[in-house]
Write a protein that binds this DNA or RNA. Structure first.
Lengths: 288, 288
DNA sequence: CGGGACGTTGACTCAAATCAATAACCGTGG
DNA sequence: CCACGGTTATTGATTTGAGTCAACGTCCCG
């Protein structure tokens, strides 16, 4: 699986500018950051004042640029303000494994806290901005504004849960199921962010998507057409609309092939399998 | 992939005893916990005293018992003191996806911090003990003993990095490469813990291992024999000895099939592929 | 000794990787 | 303006790695 995906990111552009996305930085306060994370400090006026005093950087990262270069010294954590990032690891051959997407409110760079160098890189998929919190400020900020410590733990926990979700996706048997699960997760995330859970734009190309699913990019194409023909989706390049979310959900649970349930003396099933073009067959496993 | 793996854990035993592994608890101090995590607080005598005052639970978890039941309310974080745990997620069909192993010094339950209920379960693979830190104590402990906050972030970061490693494993093309990568990571972890990096005992059965690799358990067997025959390993059930770690490393990098490097005008290669029994062929990609 | 869980090996089939061709799109430059 | 190279997406043909089914040996426990 996993065809190329070699340097999906415009290398030329990155090489031309300074390696680490350096752009006219802005300025914000810890209070701004906390507000974005959903904590208004409304009930802690004193902490609110403290947070307003603590300055945090605000950096612009143009599309395609690296926020973090894998292997570089880790100096800060980043919180996505606007835009989307792709978190990836690439081996020396240039092959790239996408590990996560990070959108508004999510932490980037947390996985480096246990070491010196960043184990992953972060690339902006579109023009983006991030809050910058220096590692050397973490302790101070957490002490002076307990809400920050709380939120940091929450976002880190979320990052962990997200990666676990990705493992679930990659563990699925068939490519169609992998895609279905991925889309459902994306849908759930969109809901959490208050956007439409039915329709959204994929921020990445087929190759990056294939890398996340752990399949060849041609297979992603085919999986899309299969799900479309099953009337579960409507796809136009990166524009995806979920037509039947319940059906998609049912389909995504079609993990490993049926088998005798754990201990329960049930023996019906199968007899429905076999014959036509595969994925279509997996469809009649639907509820209604 | 992923054959059954249905309820690898002795359900009966779990069902018989209270759902959440409940065992004669001990008592420890935050200082003990920090000492295990590698922070002696030697340079902070006052913090040392504070930490010695703060009590944390110490719980015994017999082999096969659940420390955390997926879906249960999250009330605490756990730090493995002795033994090993398997972190897993199981869908309603009884299928189980293993997400991580947790050994001495690692956190368990961190992924629940962003929600109410535990998104994963944790099962002891052998008789184990854990330090218990209530979620309600987290803020206090972090404030009173800054070293705890630091170590908590470090271990959480490690958990995230570990899961990323697992994604790398599951992203590999062939089952043999998956196994090779997994073993190398295990080897690295053993080194970090000061144990032999050449030889170790797998704590899990083939089915759980298969779940982590994202393949059928029969395939794990075959991959083991293939690597053995390649003289890279010596395997006896769960006892694994790495014979040629450099060879194994070279093999593990054999990801996707060769292809034209990014832009570079190189055209040699292949012509070596094809003919014999697959994995053996992949071997001559070695350095020397 | 029989039942159960586990590990290994073989045979068969099929889903997906691979190889290949085509089309659409984009920015550039003549 | 259109031609050109480059990147991306889709679809088809072919091959093969691994999932599945099945049989067998081992070990442990009651």
């Amino acid at each position: 699986m996993i065809n190329p995906t070699v340097l999906t990111t415009p290398v030329a552009a990155v090489a031309a500018k300074p390696a680490v996305g350096f752009s006219p930085a802005g300025r914000g306060s810890l209070a701004d950051l906390l507000h974005m994370l959903g904590d208004d400090l409304a009930e802690h006026p004193d902490a609110r004042d403290a947070a307003a005093q603590l300055a945090v950087g605000l950096r612009r990262v143009p599309a395609g640029q690296h926020l973090i270069q894998m292997g570089a010294l880790s100096v800060a954590l980043y919180f996505v303000h606007t835009g989307t990032f792709k978190i990836a690891r690439s081996d020396e051959d240039g092959y790239e494994q996408v590990l996560a997407l990070a959108g508004r409110g999510e932490v980037i760079g947390y996985d480096a806290l246990c070491v010196q160098e960043n184990p992953t890189s972060a690339v902006a998929l579109e023009d983006s901005t991030v809050y910058v919190v220096l590692r050397s400020d973490l302790a101070t900020f957490s002490r002076q504004v307990p809400a920050f410590g709380r939120e940091l733990h929450r976002t880190a926990s979320l990052a962990l849960a997200r990666t676990n979700d990705l493992v679930d996706v990659m563990a699925a048997v068939s490519s169609e199921v992998r895609l279905a699960r991925f889309l459902l997760q994306l849908s759930r995330q969109m809901t959490a962010k208050g956007q439409s859970s039915r329709r959204f734009i994929l921020r990445m190309g087929r190759r990056d998507l294939a890398s996340m699913l752990g399949v060849a990019h041609e297979t992603v194409s085919r999986a899309f057409t299969t799900l479309s023909m099953a009337r579960l989706l409507h796809v136009n390049d990166r524009d995806v609309e979920i037509l039947d979310i319940e059906g998609l959900r049912a389909f995504s649970r079609c993990t490993r092939r049926p088998q005798e349930e754990a201990g329960l003396p049930r023996a019906r099933r199968l007899a429905t399998q076999r014959g036509d073009s595969r994925a279509a067959a997996r469809l009649q496993a639907l509820p209604a």
